[in-house]
């Protein structure tokens, strides 16, 4: 089984994140890049499925040069190879452009199963996996907390507001996973060493057959018109409990008409 895991490098949540002042896109130089946390669960699920059913796990990322850090981590966890789509023309792409670009690459490299994290910690749109399913015309098995494969049939539990849906489809398919699904492994020393020898194919937009006018800031169908730092919250009142802390909160809530 040919499993492709889509991975995104994102600014570290713990470091200051900002937008560039000229075009309001993410300032990727301002913060340390790390692998998007939910994508680690996607990698883990791909590795588990490979261990159970055989096949190969390919990591696919679209992003600047330094996204290789995230690729190395995924390979160190156990993925077999990687494809890195990197091109200045892709900078500033919105979710529409990004899903188009990834679709083009997937069309070239082929897949039985695409696995994504359910959202990224930077943009948090949560749309990309569904958009990929739409573009590829394959089943959408997203927000999955459990994945099972039985021959060419795939079954997942899809989280819903009321619990979950049991969903069934035929491969090929797009899956997105939530963090409940597994516990991602840490790369072993052996894995880190092995990762250095694993193949990483670099593709430009042209290599992948991506039409330049459909991606990048110019191809985006939406735009940020302004961005400002949120006004700091007015400093609140903080008291030390002297045996009446609960009563003090109640008084505060009463003053605000909550009780």
């Amino acid at each position: 089984m040919n499993i492709v895991v889509c991975v995104k490098q994102v600014p570290d949540t713990e470091s200051p994140r900002k937008l560039k002042s000229d075009d309001n896109t993410l300032d990727r130089g301002a913060a340390d890049g790390v692998i998007n946390e939910l994508d680690e669960y996607a990698i883990e699920e791909a590795l588990l499925l490979k261990e159970a059913h055989g096949g190969e796990v390919t990591v696919l990322t679209m992003g600047p040069e330094k996204a290789t850090d995230s690729i190395r981590k995924a390979l160190a966890m156990g993925a077999d190879k990687a494809v890195h789509l990197v091109d200045d023309a892709l900078a500033g792409s919105d979710a529409l452009g990004t899903s188009y670009a990834i679709q083009q690459v997937l069309g070239r490299i082929g897949f039985d199963l695409v696995i994504c994290g359910s959202e990224s910690t930077d943009a948090r749109t949560g749309m990309l996996p569904a958009m990929l399913a739409e573009r590829l015309g394959v089943p959408q098995l997203t927000l999955s907390s459990k994945v099972e494969i039985d021959g060419s049939t795939i079954r997942v539990q899809r989280l819903t507001d009321y619990g979950y849906d049991k969903v069934e489809a035929a491969l090929p398919a797009v899956v997105s996973v939530v963090e409940k699904i597994n516990e991602p492994r840490y790369p072993s020393f052996k894995g880190i060493m092995a990762a250095k020898k694993k193949p990483v194919e670099t593709l430009s937009a042209a290599d992948a057959g991506i039409e330049a006018d459909k991606v990048g800031l110019a191809g985006a169908a939406s735009e940020v018109v302004d961005a400002t730092e949120a006004p700091p919250r007015a400093k609140g009142q903080i008291v030390t409990d002297e045996g009446d802390g609960g009563v003090k909160i109640a008084e505060f809530l009463a003053s605000k008409k909550f009780i």
């Binding site: 919250r233 007015a234 609140g236 009142q237 903080i238 008291v239 030390t240 409990d241 045996g243 009446d244 802390g245 609960g246 009563v247 003090k248 909160i249 109640a250 505060f252 809530l253 009463a254 009780i259």
Partner: peptide
Amino acid sequence: IFELVDFGVVGDLFQVAPQLTEEINKRK
């Protein structure tokens, strides 16, 4: 979390929270 609050209590939650619950129920 105290950077965000409108009102905060530094204290043992096992004392403060039940007292708050009791006080709310008393005021109903």
